[in-house]
Design a protein around this nucleic acid. Sequence first.
DNA 1: CTTGGAATGTCAACAACACTGACATATGCT
DNA 2: AGCATATGTCAGTGTTGTTGACATTCCAAG
Lengths: 170, 170
Amino acid sequence: MTDGRAGSIHNGETLLFLTDEQLRQGIEAMFFAYRGFTADPDRILADMAYGRAHHRAVHFINRAPGTTVNNLLSILGVTKQSLNRVLRTLIEDGLVESRVGESDKRERHLFLTEDGKALEQKLSDAQRARIRMAFRDAGPEAVAGFRTVLEAMMDREMHHTYQRLKDSGS
Amino acid sequence: MTDGRAGSIHNGETLLFLTDEQLRQGIEAMFFAYRGFTADPDRILADMAYGRAHHRAVHFINRAPGTTVNNLLSILGVTKQSLNRVLRTLIEDGLVESRVGESDKRERHLFLTEDGKALEQKLSDAQRARIRMAFRDAGPEAVAGFRTVLEAMMDREMHHTYQRLKDSGS
DNA sequence: CTTGGAATGTCAACAACACTGACATATGCT
DNA sequence: AGCATATGTCAGTGTTGTTGACATTCCAAG
């Protein structure tokens, strides 16, 4: 586990990428890239009374309009108290609408208002611009590999959630 | 920018990956994968009085022993007050040693003690195990693409820092 | 040798975002 | 009627980040 050259002993070509050094580079790449990933929306949000949590909520409500609070909770992986704090401000500010469920009146279905959609667009455009650039520079094959590795990195449950969203989108 | 099918009009093969839907999938993949990325160390740290910030500090001190506080500051991208709070507890608990610089006595050079190295190992082993699994499942080509995209996603400065660390490691 | 600036450390206050635990309300199901 | 579910809320706490202000130490230029 900590010998520093796992795998490379047997085959210098196919297993070289599993050395501890390669793994560490992957770890650091994730760390630095995630900073870039959130940098642009963070800059926009810093000028408002909102933070990264609001961005996430708005993103997934836009992604799955009418989603319930419970569903959003499982996607975001936070407690209801934490999500509620964010949702409350978004509803108060008129960015999110909460409608009582028709079949099950205990549920609240969440939708973005026009203002909410505008904010989502603003944040997503900034984030997408960077990803688009990165994807374009890296090329289609690199992007495919990127996604393959990320999917393999997720917890089982998150992977299911991700796939469900993916299938519903296109 | 928001027409939902950037590029795909002209060429269904090579530019398909730049649609807004593809970009959104990439964004969500990053979000879910990063949760998996930090999940294992977080579980270990939850039982101690430490958090993710301590993990990051310990990681980069281990990576570049003798690094100065200022250097660590630029790597981590936080304020000195924030880093200092973390470093103080690590030093108090005997995990990190701070040595006054020989040539420039204003500088403090940071080293892990034996206990500090033990913690770093414990945390990194947990994180590396997941990355190793993901890399192995995805294969060398996917890993190469993964790294290419992540590097393209970094800010310019972070990319320099990342490269410097990468070159010093192997 | 004095002075300016750089590197570091520290104090205080604050904000964002997460957590736990407890409790209330409305609703659905058996 | 009674239990479970979905949601909301209040109170308290912890980690991590921020600003702003200030002290100390020390190098280096004048």
